[in-house]
């Protein structure tokens, strides 16, 4: 039971990440490898502000979102100069740079060791120590993020994004400024990734840099490509499948190290196979 709760919490965290990245990748057509960095900034914001400054969990989420939003605004402005492959390579650079900062700014981030003793959230005087209550909270966050994502993509703003994805010149003719729209969705999406990071930090009660790598980013891309590009439910489905599948393998008695590699093997193979048989993913409406 405890095990199932654990997986469900992981699912809700990755679900948030997948929805967030899908807004950028599926709806706007920008393959970002910078999202692991935003995930990391959120996680460290919560970890550091809770342990060193003593802020409450919900305040740190807001601080993390603010910080990530500012970072995303700067990074997005730089990235807006690039297209396609160069966009992907340059965005990867930011994940590596943030990883390096987390790793090396030891006085603040604790270096490779990370930050320990991150408290669980407190609501109305009670600390959510049990995993079940934490699951409830993370599902609420997932619902909020997925709801916000749905609202965004159904709004006129979301339709503009899709026009930009299909043809920027057409968007310009209709009076939309692609740069502003792309920046706006990039910042929103980064802030969502930050929330996922905050949840992770408080759930695991510690953070270290090794979580926020390019690999992690590719893992989330695989979720979206599997579940469906440009579909919110698709992102959730992809997250559920890719979190659930390897965990099921662990049940069948593979050792832990092998199981971790199985996860990597699964998402790698899925990326390759899906591009051949169904490039838009199970529920998707767009192919990169």
């Amino acid at each position: 039971m405890e095990y199932l709760i654990n997986i469900s919490i992981l699912f809700s965290i990755y679900g948030i990440l997948a929805v967030s990245l899908n807004l950028v990748m599926g709806y706007t057509g920008l393959v970002s490898l910078a999202h692991a960095a935003f995930y990391g900034i959120g996680a460290y914001a919560t970890a550091l502000l809770m342990t060193k400054v003593g802020l409450g969990f919900f305040e740190t989420i807001l601080c993390g979102m603010l910080l990530t939003g500012l970072a995303a605004l700067a990074i997005g402005t730089v990235l807006s100069r690039f297209r396609d492959d160069y966009y992907i390579i340059a965005s990867a650079g930011f994940t590596v740079i943030v990883f390096n900062i987390l790793m090396n700014w030891r006085e603040v981030t604790g270096g490779a060791v990370g930050v320990f003793g991150v408290p669980r959230p407190m609501i109305a005087g009670t600390v959510l120590t049990s995993n079940l209550s934490f699951l409830g909270l993370s599902l609420v966050f997932l619902a909020v993020v997925a709801g916000a994502g749905t609202l965004i993509v159904r709004s006129s703003f979301g339709r503009a994004l899709k026009i930009i994805r299909e043809d920027e010149d057409v968007a310009l003719v209709f009076g939309y400024r692609p740069l502003h729209y792309k920046l706006a969705i990039f910042v929103i999406s980064a802030m969502m990734a930050s929330v996922a990071g905050s949840l992770l930090a408080s759930y695991l009660m510690f953070v270290d840099p090794s979580t926020f790598t390019l690999n992690e980013n590719v893992f989330v891309i695989a979720m979206i490509v599997l579940g469906g590009l440009a579909d919110i439910r698709g992102a959730l489905l992809g997250a559920a499948l890719l979190i659930g599948l390897p965990e099921a393998l662990r049940f069948t008695g593979f050792p832990d190290d092998i199981a971790a590699q199985m996860q990597k093997l699964t998402y790698g193979l899925l990326l390759i196979v899906l591009i051949f048989i169904r490039p838009q993913g199970i529920l998707g409406k767009f192919r990169i």
Binding site: V31, D84, I221, V225, Y267, G268, L270, I288
Partner: peptide
């Protein structure tokens, strides 16, 4: 296929080989 698609696929191949 576009360059971006091939890049994403090659990330998949990278993951498979590493694993």
């Amino acid at each position: 296929a576009s360059g971006a698609v091939l890049l994403v696929v090659s990330l998949g191949i990278l993951a498979v080989i590493e694993a």
